[in-house]
Design a binder for these strands. Structure first.
Lengths: 226, 226
DNA sequence: TTGCATCTTGACCATTTGGTCAAAAGCACC
DNA sequence: GGTGCTTTTGACCAAATGGTCAAGATGCAA
């Protein structure tokens, strides 16, 4: 996770921060996520973030030394969540199940943290000024690893011949699309991933499509928890 | 195309504008496209757009009354290009050829006007403040029409049963991804759609994937023009 | 060349906004 | 209740930026 941090006021309880600090930093990061994802870095204002977090601008700047520091911290705040699903792709597992699981997680995140998706998209679209280093190291390594997994599936004849990178890109693209372009989708259909039915249908459609592209079919639905 | 316009200085040659006006408006719109797609609406500065267009800020504001007017005009400037490919989907044509053609056009645009793609993505991600009305009318109508086309293909047994909307979304998502997330892709692979080989490979991979999802295979490559 | 509309610009203004600072309010511990 | 840290805030500042304006340059028809 390289440098990415947001400076903590001077001497804090060793190994952690005070209750107040912890609470406020979280409040701020949540507000920042909302603001930055809605308006982008330049469009966001520190004042509004502070208001959303329920404190004065000065106080916010007591916790984070600058707008940039808030932004960077917000990015770091979501990055783990963002990358976690890919890490679960397991070479030993059944490809259909693995891919379906990955897609389910991605869509779940698009549904529950659309702001995270948009923040990330925004950052990358602006040229990834803050996280390019991470993309070039951590993400690159992770992706290379998973490309190898997919290649092993191909080699074992478990899925049809495919360009692993493009497979990954299209999973990213399709799943994130429902968060990033939610407004457009809503304008066209009135639906939204916050709509349970639409979410289920989306997950099914995306999964079916991706699996078909590597010659697989939908795995059996996991029976309801009942 | 609803309202979307950018005000022309007072009395102009009936039915058109002077040479200078035409030239400068184009210069400005090109510069604006670059700037807005790179920094988003708020992050863009009129000064920089003017510089890029090779004129003073005051002069730019002689042609467009405000930053917002430039932005709106830039959106209108790209909107046609943006929507054109979908219009070509022909019910009478062969589904594999039609879809492949559509995908080719989308990727072509992602490659040659990545700024257009990013500008559009940016606008939609910010809640489509300017073009929501267009999405809800023109785009909605166009999409409904093409959904019907796809449904007719399904009814005729030409492609396998699919959710037409999701099919369209995934074509949008995958093709635009290569423009919007170009930086990320470059960070991972060093490649880019400006790379002819990579572009060809991408087009092939995306087409293959989309076609497979509806039970089709790649149509024969059109032989080289030789 | 003159006269007029178009075009172009620098000086200027008001507002927004990121960030500083010193002082006040809380709070914990003796 | 005093002492010293942490937390909180309003007043304030400087830079950036969108937009105005009056004056000057340019192009063009007669």
């Amino acid at each position: 996770m390289t440098d990415v941090d947001g400076q903590v006021p001077a001497r804090s309880r060793v190994g952690g921060m005070s209750r107040i600090q912890e609470k406020n930093r979280t409040l701020i990061l949540d507000a920042a996520l909302k603001e930055f994802s809605r308006y982008g870095f330049s469009g966001a204002t520190v004042e509004r973030i502070a208001a959303e977090a329920g404190m004065s601008k000065s106080n916010l700047l007591y916790y984070f030394s600058s707008k940039e520091a808030i932004y960077t911290a917000a990015l770091a705040y979501i990055l783990d969540v963002w990358l976690a699903p890919l890490k679960t792709l397991d070479r030993e597992g059944d490809p259909a199940t693995e891919l379906a699981g990955y897609i389910r997680q991605k869509i779940e995140i698009s549904a529950s943290f659309p702001e995270a998706s948009r923040l990330f998209a925004n950052e990358v679209m602006q040229g990834a000024p803050k996280i390019l280093p991470i993309l070039e190291t951590d993400l690159r390594r992770l992706v290379a690893e998973k490309v190898a997994v997919i290649e092993s599936w191909i080699a074992d004849g478990k899925i049809s011949k495919t360009e692993p990178l493009h497979l990954i890109y299209s999973i990213w693209a399709t799943t994130q699309h429902y968060a990033d372009f939610a407004v457009q989708i809503r304008a066209l259909t009135g639906h939204d991933l916050s709509d349970e039915d639409f979410k289920r249908e989306t997950e099914r459609a995306v999964t079916q499509q991706i699996l078909a592209s590597v010659g697989l079919r939908l795995p059996e639905e996991a029976p309801e928890t009942a």
